[in-house]
Amino acid sequence: MSFYRKIGLPLITGLFLIGAWYGFVLWTNAPSWKFPLLHEVLMAGYRERTVLFEGALETLSGAFFGFSSAVGLGFCFSVMMAASVSFRRAFYPYVLALQMIPVIVLAPVCVLYFGTSVLSVTAIAFLISFFPIVANTTQGLISTDQNLVDLFKMCNASRIQEVALLRVPYALPHFLTGMRISATLAPIGAIAGEFYAGSAGGAGGLGFLAIVYNARSQVAELYATGFIACFCGFIFVSVVLVLNWWLLHKWHDSIERKDL
C-alpha cells in the first residue's frame, strides 16, 4: 500500500500525462518540431549529451558556489543580526529590499561588474539564495524560547555561551528550512544568470544553451535542457534534505520517529 502510494501514484500520473501528450500530438497532427514527443526529446538529449553535460556542470558549479557562500555568509549575518538589535534594525530592511529586486535587473548589473564569466553567475545565485537563509535563521535565533534564555541566565551563562549553545542549535531547523528554499532557488538563479552572462569562452551553462536552442528552434533540445535543469535542482534539494535528516532526526519533531 505504501509502495503503491509513494511510487505507484506519481508514476501513474506521469504515464497519463505522457500518454495525453502523445495522444494530443498524434491526433491533431501538430507540427513535431513545435511539440516534440518524449522519445524525440530523449534522442535529442542523447545527441547533445556532451554539450548538455558540460553545460550542466557549469550551471551546477555556479549554483554551488553561489549557494554555499550564501549559506556561510547568511549564517554569519544572521548571528550578527540576532546579537545586536541595532544591527538588525540598520540592515534588515535592505536585505529585504534586495530580495524585491527582480533578477532581470540584478543579472545585467552583475554582468556589467563581473563580466560574462562564472563569477557573475555565482554572484547572481548568491544574491538570490541569500535572503531565505538570513530571514529564516534570524527568525530562529531571535525566537528562542524565553524560558530557555532565562535558564541560561540563571546559570550565569555568557553571551557567547548563550548564542553558541542555545540560540544556534535552537535555530538549526530554521536554518535548514532556509537552506531548503535556497537550494531550489540557486540553480534557477544560476540559469537566469547564464541567460545574461552568456557563454564567455566556456561551454556555456544550461541558461546559455536554452538561448541557443531557442534561437535555432531546436525545441526538442530545449525540452531536454529543461529536464536536465530540473535534475540539477533535485540534486541540490536532495543534498539539503539528507543534511536535514542527518542533523535533526534524533531530536526534532519535524522528522517522524519510528521507535517507541
Binding site: N147, L148, W251
Partner: peptide
C-alpha cells in the same frame, strides 16, 4: 529555577541536559 514546562534542550539527550549548568560553569 524550575519552569512551568520542563524546558529541556531538545537536541541534547537526558544525560547532556542534566549537565548543562555544569558545562556553562
Amino acid at each position: 529555577f524550575i519552569f512551568q514546562e520542563a524546558t529541556l534542550l531538545p537536541w541534547l539527550n537526558v544525560w547532556r541536559n542534566i549537565e548543562v549548568p555544569l558545562r556553562l560553569k
